[in-house]
């Protein structure tokens, strides 16, 4: 004669059946995880959106006649259209334009590669024919190679020469040194 209440003692095959406690732990744990992660996903995606938005390539802007560019760097400013979220503005950018040894026109950005102050050409008697940053004394060669303080050479603008005019585009890492 079988004793039904003895069933409890029967050892079960391990891993086959789940205890009531385990079942509740899993379902409650899963449900809570879902309730936390579900609302969190939209919020996190919302917060990181600027990082994931496609970068649009900037337009080339006409800056100066090509025959005005000399071996000596000259400063030119030009306006770009900048879209910053719900604001459209026209900030003025500055480029130092000159010819390299092969006679190709190149344009350096004056944003110091140390911490972002603005460099100037030949503005310090100690560093003749160099770009110098007044903030912490970084200085750079004519091609933008860093000689002190900064970690990288000055960035340059993409350059296009068309119909005798110099057009400048996006800022890219320096192509003239290293």
């Amino acid at each position: 004669m079988s004793k039904p209440h003895n069933n409890e003692q029967t050892p079960q095959k391990p891993g086959k059946e789940m205890s009531r406690r385990q079942f509740l732990t899993y379902t409650l744990g899963g449900a809570s995880a879902f309730m936390f992660v579900g609302p969190a996903i939209p919020m996190v995606r919302f917060a990181v959106d600027p990082l994931l938005q496609k970068k649009t390539e900037g337009k080339y802007i006409k800056v100066v006649e090509a025959n005005k560019v000399t071996n000596e760097p000259q400063e030119f400013s030009f306006e770009i259209t900048q879209i910053d979220g719900w604001y459209e503005s026209k900030p003025t950018l500055v480029a130092w334009v000159s010819k390299d040894q092969q006679g190709n026109i190149f344009a350096l950005s004056p944003i110091c590669k140390h911490l972002g102050c603005t460099v100037d050409w030949n503005n310090n008697a100690k560093f003749k024919d160099q770009y110098f940053c007044p903030c912490h004394g970084a200085h750079y060669t004519r091609e933008g190679k860093q000689l002190a303080v900064a970690r990288a050479p000055l960035d340059e603008y993409k350059v296009k020469v068309e119909n005798g005019f110099v057009y400048l585009g996006d800022i890219i890492p320096n192509q003239h040194v290293q």
Partner: peptide, 27 residues
Amino acid sequence: MEIADTVPYIGPYLKELLQGGTVVGAQ
């Protein structure tokens, strides 16, 4: 932001995340 940019590997992403875009601006 330039300081954040110097963090190894993640610097540029960290900078853009903090800035909420490519410039220090409205966002």
